[in-house]
Simulated assay, not measured.
Amino acid sequence: MEETIAGTEAAQIPQQRGESLQDTAVRYAEERHWDVFPGTWLDAVDGVQHCSCGDPACAVPGAHPARADWASVATGSATVARRLWAKQPAASILLPTGLTFDAIDVPETAGFLALARMRRMELTLGPVTCTPDRRMQFFVLPGAGVKVPDLVRRLGWPVASLDLDVLGEGAYVAAPPTRFGARGAVQWACRPTPANRWLPDVEELISPLAYACGREARR
């Protein structure tokens, strides 16, 4: 069952309910052919949730890799994914970038503004996540990191002035419904559907994203 949470004019954010982390991870591998790997999880101590990593000052409790060699654990096999989450059903769902997709990471306010512009421009969108730390990640074809600096400069924006990052090889994103401690869960601003199985190239989305981040920077 899906519950739709009102956002802005830009998007409605669907929230999955009644599905285990294991089932969701398996579905990402099986239906989207995304590599997945289990991250840390939340442990309750005296009624307070703490990250399984044991660091009381953890910046993203319950939503980061649990081991340094996480890239070697990532799998695109639904069978292996099911086995991994059977060992720790509460583990967060993390998706390595740079393989089947890169992610353009921007502030939430800029992301919703960019979504509104993209829809007016009738651009084809891939999945987009919205995180509890008020960031959004736009899924695009791999290789975006090489293209973005030149594309942004061509649009007239100083690259260093924009809060716009590319998550590619060696990085990862947290996938819904992973929780960030008490801050809430990652959700889909644009959920995966059969229509967006084929991802856009970053060149198609960079103009509204750069504009939105530039506007945010001027604030």
Rank of each mutant, 00 (worst) to 15 (best):
residue 170 G to W: 06
residue 169 E to V: 13
residue 173 V to P: 00
residue 167 L to S: 00
residue 174 A to G: 10
residue 154 R to V: 00
residue 164 L to G: 02
residue 151 L to G: 04
residue 199 L to F: 10
residue 188 W to D: 07
residue 193 T to K: 09
residue 199 L to N: 11
residue 163 D to H: 13
residue 175 A to F: 08
residue 153 R to I: 01
residue 181 G to Y: 10
residue 195 A to N: 08
residue 197 R to L: 09
residue 158 P to M: 10
residue 197 R to E: 04
residue 190 C to P: 00
residue 186 V to L: 06
residue 191 R to N: 05
residue 151 L to F: 05
residue 156 G to H: 13
residue 162 L to G: 03
residue 186 V to R: 05
residue 167 L to G: 01
residue 149 P to L: 04
residue 148 V to F: 06
residue 185 A to V: 09
residue 173 V to M: 01
residue 165 D to K: 14
residue 183 R to Q: 15
residue 169 E to D: 14
residue 152 V to Q: 10
residue 150 D to R: 04
residue 165 D to Y: 12
residue 167 L to M: 04
residue 149 P to Q: 09
residue 155 L to P: 01
residue 195 A to V: 12
residue 173 V to C: 04
residue 169 E to S: 14
residue 163 D to W: 07
residue 162 L to D: 03
residue 163 D to V: 12
residue 145 G to R: 08
residue 182 A to N: 15
residue 187 Q to V: 11
residue 160 A to Y: 03
residue 183 R to L: 14
residue 148 V to E: 03
residue 168 G to D: 04
residue 178 T to A: 02
residue 167 L to A: 03
residue 147 K to M: 13
residue 150 D to G: 03
residue 166 V to N: 01
residue 177 P to T: 12
residue 187 Q to I: 05
residue 183 R to C: 03
residue 173 V to I: 15
residue 199 L to M: 10
residue 198 W to R: 14
residue 195 A to Q: 15
residue 153 R to T: 12
residue 147 K to P: 04
residue 189 A to F: 07
residue 189 A to L: 09
residue 169 E to N: 11
residue 190 C to Q: 14
residue 187 Q to S: 07
residue 200 P to K: 10
residue 146 V to L: 12
residue 191 R to F: 00
residue 196 N to K: 09
residue 187 Q to D: 05
residue 197 R to W: 01
residue 200 P to A: 08
residue 154 R to S: 12
residue 191 R to C: 02
residue 195 A to R: 12
residue 176 P to C: 09
residue 200 P to V: 07
residue 146 V to N: 10
residue 182 A to W: 06
residue 148 V to G: 01
residue 183 R to D: 15
residue 199 L to A: 09
residue 145 G to H: 03
residue 155 L to G: 04
residue 154 R to N: 14
residue 194 P to M: 13
residue 194 P to T: 11
residue 194 P to L: 12
residue 184 G to L: 11
residue 162 L to Q: 03
residue 200 P to T: 11
residue 145 G to D: 06
residue 153 R to V: 03
residue 161 S to P: 07
residue 161 S to V: 09
residue 167 L to D: 02
residue 154 R to H: 12
residue 171 A to V: 02
residue 189 A to H: 08
residue 192 P to M: 12
residue 196 N to C: 10
residue 162 L to W: 01
residue 164 L to Y: 09
residue 155 L to Q: 04
residue 183 R to F: 10
residue 181 G to R: 08
residue 171 A to G: 05
residue 194 P to S: 14
residue 185 A to S: 15
residue 158 P to Q: 11
residue 152 V to E: 09
residue 154 R to K: 13
residue 164 L to M: 15
